[in-house]
Write a protein that binds this DNA or RNA. Structure first.
Length: 423
DNA sequence: AATCCACAGGAAGGCACGGTTA
DNA sequence: TAACCGTGCCTTCCTGTGGATT
């Protein structure tokens, strides 16, 4: 195992050095060439930039871009504001939970509300702080609290201290605030389900038991509360706000607004936006996906040196996005999980029905001695299912035949094969 | 209704690694 | 330096369970 890690390290080091040496050489030669050539050759970046584009400014199509106005989310934002308004009267607001599938504007709405609150605070005599934390980046209680301390100006190492020390440092912030006023802290925990699944409900226990802290949790799943034990649940009395998926017409409105900002006038054919909206509406009203489609279609138009975006490009963009999404996902998976996929792929090609037991046999064969336990593979299977690469169906075949999972691939064989063996 | 298989899946703990503190 | 601590990755051990068959 250590040997393997060493090998990977050497491999990465080689790539790094290779890039460093040859990358530098190539870069220098370009510089030199330009110097010698004078007017003969202009800068390569200018050349690329000079080529026509359907875009004015792509950044508005990024799902992270926060527009000044969020279409069709007024109701939800108002709900958040109704709870948070307490803070302006120097009362800690109640905890709020936001549910909704991906791309329903949860994060945008929360950030929007944060900004609005900040504006409202400036004219009032209160001290309110809002902190946003994405739980995919900070996956344990320790990390979240440490991050909160850091954002509020306390130097906390990201390892080495006990949990209690960090929590005490965090609580200490509330004791001495600069202005002699007590501070109200609103913590936005985005994708909290990941944190709870990973590290249990300790974070909620700590935060709910700290005075003047209000939590806004954002979750993709309605049932994330199953991770919260009753001792914590009793002090986490939250108000729930649901973000329904966008309908096709609502997506059209969103896309229209963004495309006016990002595309050159008249570069979109009439059917492009409705098509993106319809496709994304099928994907559970995912606005992020709709924006991706539109941007990728535009990029394809640039690639083909077309000065308009037309319907067929949207369909092409769809394939490209799917393909890239799966390939990226698989290539960044840990080695053992890739082996599980390899085993599933082999069994699929043999047209065998894949049960957990059979899969483990094949996995052991694939990994040639360097294998992990069955229990571990079982967790991998669940993780792969969460990622949507495979699907499982638990069935029971009765006396003498037992209960098992039937596993099947959810993505195209060829894409998987390509992604697995190209690394 | 009882039975029984092949697992599912929870709990707990080991270990290496990278960090801090005294 | 030794003694701690959090964390990711993994194993071991264990109990729970759906439903066709008996």
């Amino acid at each position: 195992m250590n040997y393997l890690k060493l090998k990977i390290f050497i491999y990465i080091t080689n790539i790094y050095l290779h890039n460093k040496i040859f990358g530098k050489l190539a870069f220098e030669s370009i510089l030199k060439f330009k110097h010698i050539g004078g007017d003969f050759m202009s800068n390569i970046f200018d050349n690329l930039a000079d080529r026509g584009s359907v875009f004015k400014d792509k950044q508005f199509l990024d799902h992270r871009f926060l527009p000044e106005h969020l279409p069709h989310r007024d109701e939800q934002i108002t709900s958040i504001a109704k709870y948070w308004i307490e803070a302006l009267n120097n009362v800690t607001p109640s905890d709020v939970t936001i549910y909704g599938k991906t791309g329903t504007g949860k994060t945008a709405a929360a950030k929007f509300a944060m900004n609005q609150l900040k504006e409202a605070t400036s004219s009032k005599d209160v001290y309110i702080r809002t902190e946003y934390i994405r739980c995919t980046d900070y996956t344990t209680e320790y990390q979240v609290i440490a991050k909160l301390c850091q954002q509020m100006g306390r130097d906390v190492p990201y390892r080495g201290w006990t949990k209690a020390e960090v929590v005490n440092t965090f609580r200490d912030i509330f004791k001495k605030t600069a202005f002699g006023k007590n501070m109200i802290l609103i913590v936005v925990l985005d994708e909290i389900d990941i944190l709870l699944k990973n590290d249990g409900d300790g974070i909620l226990y700590t935060l709910t038991r700290t005075d003047n802290v209000s939590i806004l949790s954002i979750s993709n799943y309605v049932d994330f509360k199953k991770f919260i034990k009753s001792r914590v649940m009793s002090s986490f009395r939250d108000r729930e706000i649901v973000f329904p998926p966008y309908g096709a017409q609502q997506l059209v409105d969103i896309l229209q607004e963004r495309s006016d900002l990002s595309f050159i006038n008249d570069s979109l054919e009439n059917d492009v936006i409705p098509l993106c909206a319809a496709m994304a509406a099928k994907e559970e009203g995912d606005a992020r996906y709709a924006l991706d489609l539109l941007r990728t279609a535009g990029e394809l138009a640039d690639e083909k040196e077309s000065n308009i975006v037309y319907g067929a490009l949207v369909r092409e963009a769809k394939d490209k996005i799917e393909h890239n999404k799966i390939t990226d996902l698989i290539m960044t998976l840990p080695v053992q999980q890739q082996r599980v996929l390899e085993a599933i792929l082999k069994l699929t090609m043999d047209k065998e029905e894949i049960t957990s037991g059979k899969l483990y046999e094949m996995y052991e064969e694939v990994s040639k001695g360097d294998s992990v336990s069955y229990r571990r593979i079982f967790d991998f299977i669940n993780e792969l299912e969460m990622l949507g690469i495979i699907s499982t169906n638990t069935i029971s075949r009765g006396r003498g035949k037992g209960r098992t999972n039937i596993i099947s691939l959810q993505c195209d064989n060829d894409i998987l094969e390509h992604a697995l063996y190209s690394t």
